[in-house]
Amino acid sequence: MPEFKLADRLATLPPYLFAEIDRVKQEVAAQGVDIISLGIGDPDLPTPQFIIDALYESAKKPVNHRYPDYIGLLTFRQAVADWYKERFNVDLDPHKEIVSLIGSKEGIAHFPLAFVNPGDLVIVASPNYPVYPVASGFAGGEVLTIPLVEENDYLPDLDAIDDDTWKKAKIFYTNYPNNPTAATATPEFYQKLVDKAREFNVIIVQDAAYTEVYYDDNKKPLSILETPGAKEVAIEFHSLSKTYNMTGWRIGMAVGNETLVAGLGKIKENCDSGIFQAVQEAGIEALKHGEPYVKEFRQIYKERRDYVIDALRNINISCRVPEASIYVWANTPKGYTSAEFVSKLLRETGVVVTPGNGFGAPGEGYFRISLTVDTDRLKEAVSRISQL
C-alpha cells in the first residue's frame, strides 16, 4: 500500500482540543458512564422559533437555492450595520466594512492568509481560542504568546512588549469577552491597544463572539470599534452562534477597517461560495427582532452561573465570577495539573470540563466549565466533582 505523508503544517499540529475531548468522552460513554458534558461552548437552548420560521419561508424561494454572493447579501450586511449602530453606536458601511462569514471561526482561520507572510510575527494573548495561533502558523507566521494573568484581570500587559517587538508584529489577536477566562475589556485597555497599533502599524484582530452574553446591563461588553481610531487598524469578528443559539447554522460577520475586510473577502472568494441565502435571511430576522429572546437567554445563563459559582466555592474550588460569556474559569484543586484533574474527573465521574492548558500554557492550573446544560445537570455535575 502506498504511504502518504501529511504536510508539515499538519504533521506538527497537536490534536484539536475539543476533538480530543470528544474522543475521550465517547470512549468513556462506551463503558456505560452517564456523561455530563460541560466542555464545549455549544448552547443547549433552542434557536428562537421565529428564526426557524424565517428560514423555512426563505428556503422555499427558488432564488435562494443558487450560489449566494461571496461577501453576503447586501440586506444581511445592512442588518449587521443597523445592529452595530443600535448596540454599539458604531457606524459601518455595509458595502465596504462588512463581510459575511460561515461562522466566525471560518473567518478567523482564513484571515492570516490575507495579511501574514512567512516569518511575520503574530502576537496572541493567551489563554486563547486555539484557532488564532494555528491559523497564523498555517500562513507561515511566527507566534508570540503574551500571558493573560488573573492579577491583571486577564488583560495583556501591553507595556511589557518592547518597541522592537511591536515594530516586528503584523497582527495582535485579542478576544473579549474572553474565552476561556470570561474576562471583559475596559475602554482604557482598548484605547491603549489601538494607540499602540496605530503607532506601530499593527493589525488588531478582535474576536467579539460573546458580547451579548452578559450579566449586568450597566456593564455591557464593548466593541473595540467604539474606540477612537480603531477603524484605522482593527477588524472585529462576530457571530450569531452564541447570541441566538445558532451554532449549527454557521453564520457570522467580520467588520471594521475596509482594507482588512476586503483582504479577507479576497481569500473567501477563492475558498468558499458564501452562506446559503435562506440562512442569511433568517439571520436578518434574528438581528432585527432577537433582543427580547437574548434577554431571556441571559437570565437563564445568569442563574446557571450563580449556582455553579456558589457550588464550587462550597467544595473549596476557587473561581472568578464572570461578567460575561457562557463560561466559568476555575482553579484546579491542589495537587493536580489541569490535564490530570480533567482526565480523572471524566474517567471517574463522567463529567467533561476543559483543561486550562488546552488554551495555551498560561491556562495551566485552571479548568473551564461551559454553562450549556440545565441547572439540574449542573447540580449533578458539581455533586460528582465534590466526590473526587
Rank of each mutant, 00 (worst) to 15 (best):
Y173V: 04
A361M: 13
D42Q: 06
H289P: 07
A330R: 09
G41P: 07
F18T: 05
F189R: 10
P355Q: 09
S338A: 05
V24A: 03
S370M: 04
G290L: 06
L193I: 08
R87N: 04
L73V: 06
I52Y: 06
N178H: 14
N117V: 13
I146R: 02
I385Q: 06
L74C: 02
K379I: 10
Y154C: 04
T75N: 13
F88S: 00
D34H: 11
V122M: 06
G356N: 09
K60V: 05
A183H: 03
Y84H: 09
Y67Q: 13
G119M: 07
T174E: 08
R377S: 14
G263E: 07
A125E: 13
W166Y: 15
V194T: 01
K295R: 09
I146V: 15
K168V: 00
L225W: 11
E199K: 11
G72F: 08
P68L: 02
I108A: 08
Q26E: 14
Y244V: 02
A278M: 12
L74N: 07
A169E: 13
T186C: 03
T145H: 15
Y336F: 15
K167W: 01
K5Y: 14
Y327W: 05
E281I: 11
G32N: 11
A278I: 00
N314V: 05
H238K: 08
L17G: 02
G229Q: 07
L312Y: 02
V373S: 09
I36Q: 00
V308T: 04
P333V: 02
P46T: 00
R9F: 01
Q49L: 11
K344M: 07
S343V: 09
P333F: 07
N179S: 12
G141K: 04
R23S: 02
L121N: 01
Y154V: 01
F237C: 03
P147N: 06
L312N: 12
A330H: 15
V202M: 06
L92R: 11
I275P: 08
A330T: 10
F276V: 03
F237P: 04
S386L: 01
D164S: 10
P112F: 03
N201S: 10
G283W: 05
R347K: 15
F276H: 11
E232Q: 05
I326C: 02
P333K: 12
A182Q: 00
D53Q: 10
P156Y: 13
A330L: 07
H110I: 00
Y67I: 11
T75Q: 10
T332W: 02
Y214H: 09
K170A: 02
E3R: 12
F297P: 00
L73C: 10
Q26V: 01
S386P: 03
P48W: 00
D91P: 00
T259E: 15
N179L: 08
A81P: 03
T165E: 14
V80C: 09
V131E: 15
I385L: 07
Y56H: 06
D69P: 06
I40H: 13
N117L: 09
S318F: 11
S383N: 06
